[in-house]
Design a protein around this nucleic acid. Sequence first.
DNA 1: ACTAGTAATATAATAAGTTATATAAATTAA
DNA 2: TTAATTTATATAACTTATTATATTACTAGT
Lengths: 176, 176
Amino acid sequence: MIEDVVRSLGYGTLGSRLKRIGEKLQSQTQEISNEVAKAELSASLNPVLATLDRNGSLSIGHLAEALGQSQPGVTRMVNKLKAAGLVESQPDEKDRRVNRIALTDRGVALVWHLQQTLWPKVMLAVKDACAGLEGSLLQQLSQLEDALDEQPLRKRCSSDSLPDWSRLAQEMEDPR
Amino acid sequence: MIEDVVRSLGYGTLGSRLKRIGEKLQSQTQEISNEVAKAELSASLNPVLATLDRNGSLSIGHLAEALGQSQPGVTRMVNKLKAAGLVESQPDEKDRRVNRIALTDRGVALVWHLQQTLWPKVMLAVKDACAGLEGSLLQQLSQLEDALDEQPLRKRCSSDSLPDWSRLAQEMEDPR
DNA sequence: ACTAGTAATATAATAAGTTATATAAATTAA
DNA sequence: TTAATTTATATAACTTATTATATTACTAGT
């Protein structure tokens, strides 16, 4: 086996490393999503749904801010959700430049479903993968990569009764 | 200011979060690169150069393994480096399916230059941003995001005399 | 030696993000 | 009120990654 250079270079390649682990998490999340989901939803759209669920209708700009992404990226995600009939947009009454995005009835129903299934499953699976991490950031990242290779998120999902989403989400809050 | 939902959801959106921080690190690294570099080199190509420097000539497949990326991705990066005259490829003598990639003289010279400038700068800047991180993974990530927002890598670069690359790289090794 | 299977790489199509720019609405200043 | 500026969003072009597939070379079994 050849050396993992990105891991070896430590701080020198931390950006690549974080992206690499992030992509692995997202693709393993997609696996769970594919098992659970009624609608086939790209995993990357879940944060948009969650944001609209938490905040009610929002402009594209505020969505972008809440998600920490660029405005054009958010526009594209919203377009996909519109095409799937999960959100709808309406020009704001007061300021007709702004485009208010809101969940449709189907969107609300899907969010409810995801809150009972995918979202708690993923949260618990990732929490499980992160259980026992310790040490410096680089050390914890190495441990997490190893954990995900050894047992993917899909295998860390109990099919047991899942805890209440709102309680789970609250527990996650701001571990500053 | 609207809530940062990706941060608030914690384990539920860890994948997006890691990618987001990784992208910020890469773009801040690119800023430093633009200041330093003779050749304008996309920051994402540095790990390829470092891998070839550490290992000598490698096949596309071994490069992909060392970088933890897909083979087609590596092929594309290598093509860019070829176009820039920094690497060259030769079919392997024994097995003519494999394409051995090696640094050219210009590539070796650039690596040497980067080892005196960009690479230690970035490594020290990232190390600086990570200094003082503590606690759980989620906590350290929040602290790192805050640190990068408050002071980007570019401003964490001393123009002072930089330490020896080979020593630095060794220090990074495997903080398991 | 021929055929089947496997392996290495290239190429094509797709995804998810970015920056730069265009457009249209609102706001400010003259 | 008109002109200039700013703001919100859309659109275009690009980047960097992916998976799926095609191509070519090697390896084994008969």
